[in-house]
Design a binder for these strands. Structure first.
Lengths: 337, 337
DNA sequence: CTGTTAGCGCCTTCAA
DNA sequence: TTGAAGGCGCTAACAG
């Protein structure tokens, strides 16, 4: 980049001192109108843009908020990213987004990078980072965590977690209420907290309604479409009397749906299907998929606002994310059969 | 954030001069082993992390590449973002991602922000920015553009554009080849270059095969699902003899698919359907959707590499993105009817 | 209201 | 091999 124009060059061009230019730029003090005009002219003419680094160095404020997401291309977390953008808009702060690819080492690396960039706050979406690291972070700067149950109260960090277990329970209860008795489950990876909680919720519901938990009705996937397809095939082979399947996320449910289609089985007539996460596409599957919606966008937005409030030493009203059962057409009633 | 540890504090702790610490940090010169050890100890003990701003200010290099995406939550562009991440990995450069929300003013604002942050290169994904601005940018720093046909040759910027028109033509030709004669089109917004080109390709194919272009067979959508649904409804009302529809992107195709489902029309038996973009979900629709795949990830990765090569004054082999017709089950043959 | 003077934290000559 | 000194571009007192 051809050497950039500096503030003092602008000052010289306008025939004023650097401080005056600075004051006009930041509105720090009243300045003579004519001088102000000259300065603006000079800025225009020279094409000056302030150097963020120099400014941050002088003020000690970076004006940026770090965001750690597990995957920059995840349809699930991206909603939260949009929310964060919205929450930060017009605040003068901008997000710096890095992805950790679900790997602890990359996440640590990313956090170090963000710290080097002197972010003033940090938002962590999901991920694998140990609670211990999160606490250490919270001690240094305002942080917000999405998708994990962790108590940051001591330092005042905020965390927004969805109640996976309860929602899974509600979902399965709904299936039972519709008359289903043999309900399969395609779970997520067992080292994934969300996956474990959803499985627990499935168990809870069964036991609550006096249905036996049958481990052979559970097959494990990896939250990706293909594993849903395979999982469904396996369930169908072993359980011909199964009438409904609770899939631990929508992506796998798409795969499961395809497996049924390949076998000529209709949804919901031959098999009822429910997912989890309510991805944008799930209102447009065939048929539209019953799922659990988490307000990722709003959660992200609130977390951004929370960080801002901390930075400005203001208070912010707490936020209770409400999960919502999106009842669509992928479930049939078995009553009367 | 409680005042961060500085380099000179480390120096004092280790009993050496700041320059020595700097040299150890950057490997700029040989340093006595014992001193080096002491310094590392001090760094560890104090928890020192270098201040990126100060460093950038001194060196004039920011180590970051700006990325402008139309929408941080777009399933289409996010693939490219992942690719960029991959391309930059291990290079010492990191991306700064900002979204322009398809609005020229926001895009300009974003570019200004990136320039303030002294990014050393820039990658522009799609968007609305006038060619003129792009040229101006290219004159200042290495830039890469994805998804627009623009000649940056003069300054050496790179652009990777898909041939929308040709692919649309291929797709419609494929439909014609399968025996379809009355083919509808749900187009994108007319102020969107991609949308216009895809419409042109549709026309090309028809005319090439001696079929009349009928404007009433074209309805305009906005690239979102609901508009695909409405578009399909309108087409069905006016053209009962239509046997196939080319939808200008997959998202709208999902909507169109739902419209058909609601009316009890089967795909492909009653209506053939093709989309464009090949979103990840399109292999899992019911039935899997025929579409055009663009290697967004690879394109992003190559652009990142391109920027790096420019920054290092190296050369890089050119990249010819290949679009691919993904033939799936959403098209039926009408031969013999 | 405005110019002068010090740094912010780091890197990079220049001598030693 | 190492330290001292100066400067990167900007802001923030401090005097006028």
């Amino acid at each position: 980049m051809n050497r950039a124009v500096t503030l003092s060059e602008v000052a010289r061009e306008a025939g004023v001192s650097p401080s005056t230019v600075s004051r006009i730029l930041n509105g720090t003090a009243r300045v003579n109108d004519t001088k102000a005009r000259q300065v603006r002219l000079a800025i225009e003419k020279l094409g000056y843009t302030p150097n963020t680094f120099a400014r941050s160095l002088a003020t000690g404020a970076s004006g940026s908020i770090g965001v750690l997401t597990p995957d920059i291309a995840s349809p699930f977390y991206n909603d939260a990213l949009s929310g964060i953008e919205r929450g930060l808009m017009g605040s003068g702060y901008s997000p710096i987004i890095i992805s950790g690819h679900w790997r602890t080492d990359e996440e640590e690396h990313a956090v170090a990078l963000l710290l080097n960039r002197r972010v003033e706050g940090m938002i962590i979406l999901g991920g694998q980072m140990p609670d211990h690291d999160l606490h250490a972070l919270a001690a240094r700067l305002p942080i917000g965590v999405l998708g994990r149950t962790i108590d940051l109260g001591a330092h005042g960090g905020a965390s927004l977690a969805m109640d996976n277990r309860q929602s899974a329970r509600d979902l399965v209860n709904y299936l039972i209420g519709r008359g289903h008795r043999v309900i399969g489950h395609i779970s997520g990876p067992s080292d994934h907290a969300d996956a474990r909680e959803r499985l627990d919720g499935y168990r809870d519901a069964l036991e609550e309604r006096g249905l036996r938990f049958d481990p052979t009705l559970v097959v494990q996937g990896d939250f990706q479409e293909p594993s849903g397809l395979i999982g469904m095939q396996r369930l169908l082979q072993s359980h011909s009397n199964m009438t409904a399947v609770f899939v631990a996320n929508d992506q796998m449910a798409y795969g499961a749906r395809l497996a049924l289609y390949r076998l000529g089985l209709r949804v919901p007539d031959d098999m009822s299907l429910v997912g989890f996460d309510d991805l944008p596409g799930s209102s447009y599957t065939m048929p539209p998929l019953t799922s659990v919606r988490q307000p990722m966008g709003e959660m992200g937005q609130w977390l951004a606002r929370y960080i801002l409030s901390r930075l400005r030493s203001e208070t912010i009203e707490p936020f209770e994310p409400r999960q919502e059962l999106m009842l669509r057409e992928s479930v049939a009633s078995r009553r009367g059969r």
